[in-house]
Each structure stands twice: as C-alpha cells, then as structure tokens.
Design a protein around this nucleic acid. Structure first.
Lengths: 226, 226
DNA sequence: TTGACAAGCTTACAGTGTAAGTCTAGGCTT
DNA sequence: AAGCCTAGACTTACACTGTAAGCTTGTCAA
C-alpha cells in the first residue's frame, strides 16, 4: 500500500536544519509567533516533533535560527557613497524586512544569542561608521541609536491602527475609546487623521533626524581616529 | 483548627482586579514574563487559577493591565519649560521605568489594547507638541520617532552584554565568538570596549539628536496651526 | 552475515490557558 | 426565622505545549 502524501507540503527528503528553519519561517510568517510549536513544524515537514531535536537544540534555538534568517534578508549595501548613504539604505531595508516578518520585531533586539547574519550585519555597520570618521564610542552610540529607531519605530508601526486600511474603523471604534473631554489632544489628533483617511507612517522622518544629527556631530568634533 | 497561612503573601482579603495586577507585577518583575501563569498568580494570592477569571478576561487582559501599571509609573512633567524640556523629561523617565521592568519593553509598543495610563501618556505628549507649534502630522511623526527611540533603544540595551558588570566575561567569551578575520570591525570595537571596562549605554545621545532635529524642523518651517 | 550507527518514532510527564459546571456562605425577601 | 438567590471561589476536564528517555528501523561497512 502506497502511503498517499503523508501531510502535504514536502514529499519526503532527509531532514535538515535548513529545511526545519524554512518550514518554521513559513509557519510564523503565515500564522504568527504563537502558532509556532514543535509539533506543528514537524507536521509541516511530515515528521514527528521530537525528530526536530536532532537538528535543533531547543525551541529557543529554532527561534534564533529564524531570526538570523530574517536578518540575512537585510541588504548590506556595498555600493553606497558614504556612511550616511549606507546607514540610510541599510535602515530602510531592515525596516522593510521587519514589516514582512511582523513577528520578528519584538524578538529582534531582545536576543543575546546572535547568529552569523547578525554578526555580519553589525560588522558592516561598524565598518561604515568607523571609516566614516566616528570614534569607537561614537560608533556604538550611532549604531545603538539607529537600530533603536529601526526596531522601536517598526514595533509601534506594526501595532498602531493608523494605517489607511484601518481608517474607517478607527474613525468609529477608535475615537469612541478616547473621550474628548478627558483626552482632548489625543482625540483631536486621531479625528484629524481619521478625516484624512488614515496615514502612512514615515519611518524616514526619524531616520533622517538621526542621520543629520550624526553628520553634524562628525563635522563639529573633528577629531577622529580613536 | 486554624488554617495556618494558606500560601504566604497576603493573608485573605476579597479578590480584586487590583490585587491580581499587583501580584502579577511582582511575579513578573521578579521572575520574568515566562514565569507568569494564571496558576502562579493565583498561588501568590492563595487562590485557584480559575478564580482570577472573574476579574480578568484573559491572560492577555492581565498583561494589558500590567503594562498599564508600568506606564502609570512614567512621570508626566507639568513643570517643564517647553515641549523640548517636557519630551526630554518624559523620555528619560520612561527609559528608567522600562529598565526597572525589563519584561515590559518588547510588549510595550506591540499592544493595540491601550489602558487609561497609556491614553493619558499619549494625550499629554500630543498636548506639549501641538502647543509647541507642531502640526498634526509633525506631532505624530515626532511622537512616533521619540517613542520608537525609547522602546527600541531600551530593548537593545537590556540585552546587550556591554554593561560594565559584563565587561569581564565579554572580554573572554564574547570576543571569542567574533573571529577577527571575518568580522574585523566588530572585533575591534568590542575589544576596545572590553579594555575600557565596559560601557554605560547613553540613552540621551539618540534622544538629543532627535530633539535637536525636531527643534530645527520647527524653526525652519514656521507655519504652525494646522 | 553481522554489527554499528544514525535518523526518525513512541511514550510519557509536567506544565499551560481556559470552558463548563459545582459548591457555599452571606444577604435579601417574605 | 425560613427560604432562596447569587456572587465569588473551587473542581474538573480538555486540548495543547516543550522536551526527557528510550525504542525501532533502514543503511552501509566489515
């Protein structure tokens, strides 16, 4: 008797860490982080949950792997003119990647265990900043501020109901939650936005504020090289 | 027979949403978010898990409550001179609060369901910015950038092993993970920091970059009032 | 043919959130 | 005072989680 397609997705290949990670990524992208369970990942591969543990130490190890997959999607620009250009491209790419993988944002900055993609990402950042003339301290400050903006801004953006597609229900349900007498400014601002038919969040607003500030820092304090 | 102290903490009072939230907050502050379970919160109050559901819709509702408790700790300055001063004070207070409640940061921006403290926090922010002369759009941009920095920066800070107390082990274990040939800049930067005995992250670096940028935005584009 | 070994499977356990139903003590009406 | 109601806490149960421990089976080398 021929077993007629164990599950559905992949027919039957040798299990690999890579295959596990890709199955996990698809699951998480489609159904969110809370849907990620060892049993479900196994199911997607036509395999029992415990079989995964040959290739993955932990669930936490799996998640670390997923995060590194996401980071690897961030474009590291080698054609940039200067550090500012490079940091800008990198930030925008990271932002887009994080919007694609909505689940990743809260985990991103909050993981100590960094994979090879993350290492490369950071090294490239440091390279641009150091060669741009920033001291070691300034480099860390700049990196931290920029990445903070990337993660923090995107984290908010993913959960604020200000997007144009939410405008209609924001105008009704959202505003009802904000009594005008108690929270006049909040009420007014949200009303205005709802009238305007929602609003696309502008990631580059804060990004350019930071980049311009960094540029100014570099020109005023001329001392570079450590 | 006198029942000798059901659990330990509170002797026996009528259960309240407030008591539940405070027990939950203590649990989470002490043992982290993953230690938060309905059964354990109940235990801390000398009560069965299911009894909590009279005062709390969900575990998610409980967490929303905890977050609002945290937000309520943020000082909203009414003695500030101008919007810049107010935003600065507010950001620094928020940063300190988030460092006190390490578990809160990843959840903070990523919750749609906002409580009364959050509403007040946002309203106050909008009030300062609008009265400072920012348009509605600019107000949202500014708020988003500032809060993005607060959450994003703190999120990273909480998990980077660059703190002075980690300096020793960073110098050994950390650097070993960063091969100098593959990641030269990363390696160099971390070595330098380790030699310097660690480093206190400077939240106000990025904050002041943003504030100065916002100030400049305000003076160059003179048109205010919508 | 035999043995070893690795890849995947099975079972089991302690823990989770929570739906559904049950008890019980206090206060109300009569 | 008697009876009932009900709010607040408890009990049971279910489907699900991560993962420790051990088992089966297919493949290849000696």
């Amino acid at each position: 008797m021929t077993p007629p397609d164990l599950s559905q997705a992949e027919p039957r290949m040798p299990l690999t860490r890579e295959r596990i990670l890709h199955a996990g990524l698809e699951l998480v992208d489609l159904h969110g982080l809370e849907a990620l369970s060892m049993r479900r990942v196994g199911q997607a591969l036509g395999v029992e949950a415990m079989s995964l543990y040959k290739y993955v130490k932990d669930k936490s190890d799996l998640i670390d792997g997923l995060i590194d997959l996401v980071i690897a999607e961030i474009d590291i620009p080698h054609d940039a003119n200067d550090w500012k250009d490079a940091m800008r491209q990198r930030a925008i790419s990271a932002h887009q990647v994080l919007l694609r993988h909505r689940w990743a944002c809260p985990l991103m900055g909050s993981r100590v265990n960094i994979g090879p993609a993350m290492l490369g990402y950071i090294d490239d950042t440091f390279a641009w900043l150091r060669q741009g003339g920033f001291t070691v301290e300034q480099t860390l400050d700049a990196w931290h501020a920029l990445d903070g903006h990337i993660f923090g801004f995107t984290l908010q953006q993913l959960n604020l109901p200000f997007a144009p597609e939410d405008a209609a229900q924001m105008a009704v349900a959202g505003i009802a939650l904000i009594p005008a007498d108690r929270y006049p400014y909040f009420h007014a601002v949200v009303s205005t936005i709802a009238q305007m038919g929602g609003r696309v969040e502008r990631f580059e607003f804060g990004l350019d504020l930071l980049l311009k500030g960094l540029e100014r820092l570099l020109t005023t304090s001329g001392s570079s090289h450590d």
